[in-house]
Computed example of a mutant assay.
Amino acid sequence: MNRTALALIVAAGAACLAPAHAALAADAPECKAVRLADLGWTDIALTNTTAEIILGALGYEPSQTMLALNITFDSLRNGDIDVFLGNWRPVQDEDYRVYFDDGSVIPVATNLTGAKYTLAVPKYVFDGGLTSFDDLETFADKLDRKIYGIEPGTNKPLLDMVESKAHGLTGDWEVVESSEAAMLAQVQRAVENREWIVFLGWQPHPMNVNMDMAYLSDGDAEFGPDFGGATVRTLVRKGYPGQCPNVTAFFGNLVFDIDYENAGMNMIMTDGLEARDAAEKMLKAHPEKLEAWLKDVLTFDGRPGLAAVKAELSIQ
């Protein structure tokens, strides 16, 4: 037997003895770095950081970059960001339709159902008669013709509403753009002084637990029916599923629920925990989530993912 034949036999034998899961490790080397978009929203802080912790335990190197919503879609299109966990539908469908139509972004999962997203007021304002978008003009003076929103790029339905003077709006209404934290601070000050205020509200969020509030009706044109009833999807950039099938499988599995997100967000916003501490605490309180999230998912080097993550996070 010559050396070449012997080498082929040895190689074939080694291949037969190799662990079966090694053949499944299909992510390209460049997939080790996983770039997530962060909009500064507490829900994304929780979900991004949850993904970050699990990916780190799988041997990947995740990172988060703070971006405005419009820049997030541009960054996915340009290949500068890999994953976005905050595609709220239907509110983003029209404004960012071109990115879906040209294939720049690819939905891989609906990561949350039962969400809502529309204008809200403190309950005492609602009881005072402001119950609908159509009531805004009636109480314009009490509201100082201001609607409080969040980050620029996120408030377009409200900006369009004011510009077109929908719902009978007159005069110079202003959409105050700032951030989630700044908006909620403004709302809290108004509540403490029993002042009138209208603001962008959503669920899941601790505001629904920590504040006596109500959502306005008749905003279907701006935010969709059922008080802006929404689902949230996970998007990846074009080409990512083929290049990084293992990571894509993980994000396809990563599905949350309203109670989970409300509890985790409350730890951040009310209890003052860092996002990582809250995410770790939620993971350890709900180890059953990992079973679904890591189904058929491997570590970066091809080992079974669930066992690796549980060992890294000391979860039984």
Rank of each mutant, 00 (worst) to 15 (best):
M1P: 01
I9N: 06
V10F: 10
A12K: 03
A15E: 11
H21I: 04
A23H: 10
A26T: 15
A28V: 03
V34W: 12
D38Y: 15
L39M: 09
W41Q: 06
L46W: 05
T47P: 04
A51L: 00
G56Q: 01
S63T: 04
T65P: 04
L69G: 01
I71S: 14
I71R: 13
D74H: 15
N78P: 04
N78T: 05
G79V: 06
R89E: 10
R89N: 08
P90H: 12
V91H: 11
E94S: 07
V98N: 06
Y99N: 02
T113I: 05
T113D: 06
G114Y: 11
T118N: 09
T118E: 04
L119R: 00
P122N: 09
K123F: 06
K123V: 06
S132F: 05
D134C: 01
L136S: 00
T138N: 14
A140D: 00
D141F: 15
K142W: 15
Y148V: 13
G149M: 07
P152G: 12
N155P: 05
D160I: 01
G168H: 00
W173I: 03
V175F: 07
V191C: 07
E192C: 03
E192H: 04
N193S: 10
L200D: 00
L200P: 01
G201Q: 01
W202L: 15
S217W: 01
A221R: 14
D226L: 14
V232E: 11
V236K: 05
V247F: 07
F251I: 10
F256P: 08
D257Q: 09
M265N: 00
T270G: 07
L273N: 13
E288Q: 10
K295S: 12
D301V: 08
G302Y: 05
G302Q: 03
P304V: 02
A311H: 04
I315C: 07
